[in-house]
Structures are given as C-alpha cells and as structure tokens.
Design a protein around this nucleic acid. Structure first.
Length: 325
DNA sequence: GCGACAG
DNA sequence: ATCTTGTCGC
C-alpha cells in the first residue's frame, strides 16, 4: 500500500528548517583541507564515495538510500550499501536535505562502524596517517553552497559527517540572480571539451559554483558547487576526473544500484511481486553492504555504450579544467 | 495569473 | 524524483 507523507510543511516548519540551515552553515569550510586536494594528480586519493536516494513509484514514503565507494582513479565499485527507508518529509525546493540527508548520514555511519572489517589488503590501501576513511570525499546528488541560503544538501551532509563533500546538480538552481538565460545557454555552447567550465556568479558577486562539461560527448553541463572541506577548483577538477559519462561515477553508481535494489525488492512499479524475487535467474537475493565481492566490483556495463567511442583519450584531470571566465 | 521548481 | 519504448551507433 502506497503510504502518503505529509504534504507541504507549514510555514512554521520551514522557518525552523531555515534556522537550522543558518545555524549549520557557519560550520561549512569552503577550502581544501586535505593534501591530495591540492595535488595536481590527486595523489593520495584512493577512494571516492557517492550517495543517492531513489524512490518507489506511486509511493511517497518508500525509497532506497544507497552509498557506494569507488576506487580512484579506476572508478570501480568496491563497496555498496542499499537500504529501504521510509521518507518522512516531502520534497520542498531549498529543503532537500530535510527529506534525504538523515538516511545518507546513517549510511556513512554504517560504513564507519564496519570499516575495520573492510579494510582490505594492507598494501593496497596506503592511507597515510590512517584514520582510514574508506572514502575521502563524497559526491552528493544536489547542490552545495549554490543554494537559496547557501546551504544545500551537500553542505548539510558535509557538516553532519565532517567529510569533504561535492555538490553535483543536473539542473541549474536559479537562485541569487542566476538564471537559465540565453546568455547562460550561450556560455554552455562555448564549452567545447570535457573539463571546460565557467563560473556561476551570484548577484552578490560571489562565485557560487561552476557549470562543467563533464566529458567530451556531453552537451548538458553539470552544476558543481562546494559542499564541505574542499575548494571549488578542486571540486570541479575532481568531478571531471570521476566522469566516465555525464554523471560522476560515484553518484551514477549509487543511483543505478539504489534503483536496482528497489526493482529487485519490490518488483516493477510499486507492487511487491513475490514471484519475481526468486524466479529470476539470480539465486542471490540480496547484495548487502557486506559485498566487497568481485562480482559487485567490476561487473557492470554502462548503458551508454556509444559514449566511449572512437575518442580514446579522456582529458587528464589536470590543470586544464578552468575554462571560461 | 505567471513562472519557477536541486531531488 | 518516477516509467516506457524505440532507435541509433559501434
């Protein structure tokens, strides 16, 4: 049965949420805090994470939250955690975090708890200093400081977990004077190669984020903004370095896997199809967080097979990611 | 009434 | 955010 979640929150609630955003915003660090972030080749970066929440169609409560960890620079999945959750807050633009962020924090906490179990081959993972985060930066589906009040979900998650976070949105949030104008579209047209970008300046003269052409064969840009503990420049450069396709691989894998989990668990649509769960050829019912298995690791083929076409060389994620001004 | 609306 | 179907290119 498709349960329903509260409709639009009363103004009083939104007021509280705004206050909470303002309170937490003071903790955002919008500069590089880690050595690898300043390294031209991101030397020392070994693990990148991605989070996403997918929804059950026709059900405003049921969803799947997922966290994946990928190796860098190979971008192969080494960890996956999918979990069914019950949403309590509706989606309100500007308040996305209040709908999704708690599940993401939970997933991070689960990983941190079972992390000692997972640290694999001692040689393969040379995390110097080693309070060994299994991942060192988290990609978030949504904006960071590019937000109505400068505190999008990527900032929110960053502050709550104290982790470096990058906000990656697929559409421009038209805020602080930013608009999807003719001029904006023209700037997009001028992005020629993967890694090209231009700054998004708010009315106050501050650069809120960057529009990034994530790879050579992508026309629609990504909108990258600082979440936490990372400079915008490093965020853009790393985002480019994590794009096999338009969407950064950590977020893309989190999305694919959370949707797949829903599909396998509930069947097509929102109908709990009891027959489907087991009748499928895969006898293995679940792939839980435990999976650091090889089957989970490299076994998926990207849907967009043509994107990796004749052009063999990707741009090295080097100092070429600046683009227009 | 019109336009905007991260996910 | 969500689904579907077909089509194209390699």
């Amino acid at each position: 049965m498709a349960a329903k979640v509260a409709t639009r929150p009363p103004a009083e609630t939104l007021s509280l949420w705004k206050r909470e955003q303002a309170r937490l915003k003071a903790f955002v660090v919008d500069r590089d805090t880690e050595a690898w972030q300043r390294d031209p080749a991101f030397s020392g970066l070994q693990r990148v994470g991605g989070v996403d929440v997918s929804f059950v169609k026709g059900d405003s409560v049921g969803a799947c939250a997922s966290l994946v960890v990928l190796s860098y620079p190979e971008l192969e999945v080494v960890y996956e955690d999918c979990r069914m959750v019950s949403l309590t807050a509706p989606y309100v633009s500007g308040f996305l975090a209040f709908r999704e962020v708690s599940f993401m924090v939970d997933a991070v906490r689960r990983l941190r708890e079972k992390e000692p179990h997972l640290v694999p081959q001692a040689g393969a993972l040379q995390l110097t200093g080693t309070f060994p985060w299994l991942f060192q930066v988290l990609f978030v589906d949504g904006n960071g400081v590019l937000h109505h009040r400068g505190f999008g979900v990527a900032c929110h998650l960053g502050v709550l977990t104290d982790l470096p976070c990058i906000g990656v949105a697929k559409k421009l949030l038209q805020v602080d004077g930013l608009e999807n104008s003719t001029l904006h579209k023209e700037k997009i047209r001028l992005l020629r190669a993967g890694g090209d970008s231009f700054p998004l300046m708010g009315g106050s003269g501050t650069v809120l984020g960057m529009a990034l052409r994530s790879h050579d064969h992508s026309t629609k840009p990504l909108y990258v903004s600082v979440g936490h503990k990372m400079s915008l420049e490093a965020a853009v450069r790393l985002t480019h370095g994590c794009c096999r396709f338009r969407i950064p691989e950590p977020v893309r894998q989190a999305d694919i896997r959370s949707r797949g989990y829903i599909h396998r668990t509930l069947g097509i649509g929102g109908t709990p199809a009891p027959g489907r769960e087991r009748s499928r050829k895969a006898p293995r019912p679940r792939a839980g967080p435990e999976g650091v298995s090889e089957e989970l690791a490299g076994k998926d083929r990207p849907p967009e097979a043509h994107s990796q076409g004749p052009r063999t060389h990707r741009r090295a994620p080097g100092p070429d990611a600046q683009g227009q001004g």
